[in-house]
Amino acid sequence: MSFYNVIIFILFLIYSLNVFSQETLNNKLYEKPYANNALKSGKYFAREETRNIELDEFENPGMIWVERGKDLFNLQDGENNSSCALCHKGDTNSLLGVAASYPKVYKNQLINLEQKINMCRKNNMNLPKYKLESNNLLSLSSFVSYISKGVPMNVSVAGKAEKYFKKGKEIFYQRIGQMNLACNQCHDEIAGSYLRAEKISQGHINGFPSYLMRWEGIASVHRRFQFCNNQARAQPLEIGHNDYNALQLYVAWRGNGLPIETPSVRR
C-alpha cells in the first residue's frame, strides 16, 4: 500500500464519518415528541361541555364564520366582478385538502392560509388585501379550512421549507419572557396536567381558525401564539410575522396526521 493510498483512505474515512454524523443530526432534527398513534387533538383535553359545543355544528359558534366565509367566497366584487368561486369553479371540492398543506413556501416565502387568500385577492382578483385577523379574512380562511374538515394535516418541511422548519423548531424550544418558558416545556412534556383549571394540551393547531370563548370570536394561529407569549410575559410578535409562520410550520408538522377540525371551540 502506497503512501497516497493511505491518505485517500483517511480522507474517505473522514468524509464518511461526516456524512454519518450529519445523518444522525438530521434524524434528531425530525424527531417528533409524539408518535402518530399518540397524537391527541386539542378537543381531547377540552372540558366535556366545550367539546360538545364544538361537535354540534348547530351549536358551534365558529360556524357563523364558516357561513360568512362561504358567502364571501361566492361574492362577486371589484371592477372585474371576480369572486373566489369563479376561479375555483364554484366547486369547493377543488380546494379539498388545501388547508392541510399550509403554511407552505410560495415564491421563496413561507406563507400561511390567510396570507395566501390575500395574495389571491391582490394578484388574481385585483382586490385590496384584507387586514390580517379581520373578520372577513378569518371567515374565508375558516371556510377554506372547513372544506378540508377530516383531512389529515400534511405540511411539507422538505426542500425550501427546511430552513423555516429549523427556525420554527428553534423558536419552539427557546425559553422566553419573564416566566422564562419554552413551548416544549408544557406541550411536549406535561400535556394532560392541570394549569389551574385548564388541562394542558399537546399544542396542535388542526382546529384553527378556532373559536375562543374568552374572545367570543374566531382567532388565527398567530393570535393564539400572541396569547401564549402574553402568558409567558414575553413580547408578542405581530400577526403575520415570519417567525410566527416558521413556528406555525413546525407546530403543524409535529401534528401532521391529525384531521382538520375547523372550527374548533376552546375556552
Binding site: 427557546q174 419572557g177 419573564q178 418558558l181 408578542p236
Partner: peptide
C-alpha cells in the same frame, strides 16, 4: 418550569 421569582436579567424577549 417554575420561573425564578427574583430575577430580572438574562431573560429573552421580555414584555416591555
Amino acid at each position: 418550569l417554575m420561573p425564578a421569582f427574583y430575577k430580572n436579567q438574562n431573560l429573552i424577549r421580555v414584555d416591555k
